[in-house]
Amino acid sequence: MKCAVIMFPGSNCDVDCYHACRDVLGQPTEYVFHKEKFSSVDFDLIVLPGGFSYGDYLRAGAIARFSPAMESVIKAAEAGKLILGICNGFQILLEAKLLPGAMKRNRDLKFHCHDVFLRVENNNTPFTGLYKKGEIIKVPIAHGEGNYFADRDTMEKLKARGGVVFTYCDRDGNVTEEANPNGSVENIAGIVSEQGNVLGMMPHPERCAEDILGNTDGRRVFESILQYVEGSVAHGR
């Protein structure tokens, strides 16, 4: 599987995503600088990492979306390539309209860095195939603007097609107000596109993918992707 990690000015989880793809997963991985374009056939997985692209000035992700690399990302998405946006990467995907909705500042206006529990709502995606539906996993968050918003119509459509992939829940899997760290609509932590090939999530799976970090719950996001891509190749899809 060929992986790309896009480097926007202000990205800071680019090295972590690179490490997860190359060292943890053992797959060939390249950085793509935001001023570069690439072809859809170059990569199987394109990761939009976390950070503060363009300082998050104006709105998180708003400026990054206009970079040359994003033009290629949009084309790759149309060509069915897998796109994984984590944290700021999710915000960029929203601004680029590859995913529906928008992001606001956290309800309490504070940056939150701690573990949260997530419920896997949909395991029928290229990103979550190795999880069980309803499984509860622990993944760290680190963001100041993760308060997902979508209007009622959008929400209904999103839910109807199984677009909600992860929700914030408590230790026992209850999706409650207290378990919602940022005020997201219906505790949404991650969503997938209609075609199923674009995932955006606020929590950081790359930060919990190794034993030494004390938690490997995030690793299966990357392993699911690998399994899906290799399966696709094997089946000639």
Partner: peptide, 8 residues
């Protein structure tokens, strides 16, 4: 295009 996000 940029200054406002019409979603919100």
């Amino acid at each position: 295009k940029l200054l406002a996000n019409p979603v919100i």
